[in-house]
Write a protein that binds this DNA or RNA. Structure first.
Lengths: 165, 165
DNA sequence: CATTTGCTTCATTTTTTCTTGAAACATCTG
DNA sequence: CAGATGTTTCAAGAAAAAATGAAGCAAATG
């Protein structure tokens, strides 16, 4: 049997599917593989798991496990549950998947839109210094950017609401 | 004056803002910096630009320019316009920003959802092999995944329509 | 209160992703 | 059709992102 499995019991098909699925989706919002692995494992885990169970099961390092859990905790995707008579922290997945979308919107999209809005303001000011010939066409393009930004901004709160069902 | 500017005229404030803005947004959908740069530059360019103008202006390599333009062309964000008496291809930005969203949805989101759907099917099948004790709780979790996937699938076409205004 | 156990942090290494530029190809021009 | 010009491709290098694991901290145990 392969070395990776010597200490850990092999992953079940169900676990593998869940893990790969979350790796894929979480990568989409910029989270590293190890974070997807951890969440996927916890999502189908029948019982709360301690950090070393997780490391062992996934074959990831101490650091990756610690940091991944920290991150997942930080946006409420994972919680610590205290297990009677257990010294180690035990983790469970919070099943509210909307969290990921919400965090992504608030941490990634929203800030970018804010700086984009500032940029557009600066661009409008810079417009004055353009040769008159180019000014009109460029103004139109900036208007278009504005339009899109506006659209995005209106969409976000709606999306958040939709996520929360 | 800095070496980067010896050959190319300096970027205008307006160009810088546009470039940084698009670098930021396009990175979000997984496109490399150079692609954001190129699109940003073309977005505010008053005239169609040839590949070497772009390279020079941005200080990027031949390869990056060629590949970036190829990619942008591939999803219609950039077009070649033939300029009378000019041998080199000249590029303009297509201003329809919805293209990026649409491409992202079709190339990234949709396929992931499809494989996720298959995974869920396999998970349901694997459920049978679980100890009876765990089966019920796990079934519920898989149901939840299904629910979310469904939600996502309904959202996508709606989003595409919204993008196209 | 010394020791063990669990966890976090972070400098280093590994892996992945992006960029570069030379070579090959293609097309135009005189 | 020979040279010049413009473009693509891709192997190698550079940069960025992620994972590792040892050092240090903190809390529990006996």
């Amino acid at each position: 049997m392969a070395a990776e499995r010597e200490a850990a019991s092999a992953l079940q098909e169900l676990e593998v599917e869940a893990i790969e699925m979350f790796i894929n989706f979480l990568r989409l919002i910029g989270l590293p593989k190890s974070v997807g692995e951890i969440y996927g494992l916890l999502f189908v885990a029948p019982r709360p798991m301690a950090m070393d169970d997780i490391m062992e099961r996934l074959g990831i390092s101490l650091g990756a496990a610690s940091q991944g859990l920290k991150l997942l905790r930080s946006f409420g995707a994972v919680r610590v549950v205290y297990e009677r008579g257990e010294r180690r922290d035990h983790y469970v997945a919070d099943l509210e998947l909307s969290r990921f979308a919400t965090v992504f919107i608030k941490d990634e999209l929203q800030p970018r839109m804010d700086t984009a809005a500032e940029r557009i303001k600066r661009m409008e000011r810079a417009l004055a210094e353009l040769p008159a010939k180019e000014r009109k066409a460029t103004r139109e393009r900036i208007e278009r950017l504005k339009h899109w930004l506006d659209k995005g901004r209106k969409l976000l709160p709606w999306l958040i609401r939709f996520m929360k069902l």
